[in-house]
Amino acid sequence: MSRIAATFDRLRGEHRQALVPFVVAGDPDLATTGQAVGALARAGADMIELGVPFSDPVADGPINQRAYQRALAGGVTVRDVIELVGQARPAVPVVLLSYYNPIVQYGVGRFCADAARHGVDGVVIPDLPADEADELVAAARPVGLDTIFLLAPTSTDTRIRVVAGRSSGFIYGVSVTGVTGVRDRLPEEIRELVGRIKKLTRLPVCVGFGVSTPDQARRVAEIADGVIVGSALVALLEQPGDKVARLEQFVRELRKAIDAVGARGAGPS
């Protein structure tokens, strides 16, 4: 069983939902990300999602775009991010989020092998639909790297079956038709999507895109197995001052809000 699957098993037993914070590796530099990884784990993250910078992130809103640009200005590459994970080796699972081209150029097979060897547990590729992922899945399975695909409010039941058939670890539910970013309110359609996914697969579902406040995190935790918070954290790293301390404090608040749901949530089924 992968570390990600084991994490969801444990959470299910504890009637808790996963908190998955996201930051961009190398924003503003790799040393800060190294500290951030430790702080996120201390603050109660169940998994950490690290973004690999890319020049043309079409699924991302302005906050993450700026973070990728800051990381690219420092010359951060796929290799740097994998090595960062190898050095940090946090106690919780690590998922890399990367657009497909940096992985293609690194070599899909080599990427999976190197990532797994350095302690990466899973990969999310926002511009690689499950039915284009033969090569990735074939390379990831033997080395125990989970392949996490996305589903969106526009996804049909046919798509849910295709994605579930290729996914391991968990499924990434996109809360909105749109790009990543901070939002005042979350659409109702996410409840419907999670419900449809749950009917067709036993894989855990984590919801992201736009989850920005402890209150929103709590509401997502009521319907899903996990909550992914990205842009709201990335925005904290843009501000001057003690970025890592701010990050840790905010993740503690998210943790508290999610744990208030507990067994009341629909949660893991």
Partner: peptide, 12 residues
């Protein structure tokens, strides 16, 4: 060729 886009666009 192919279709390398976010999942949201696949049904469209």
């Amino acid at each position: 060729g192919g279709r390398y886009v976010p999942e949201t666009l696949i049904p469209a």
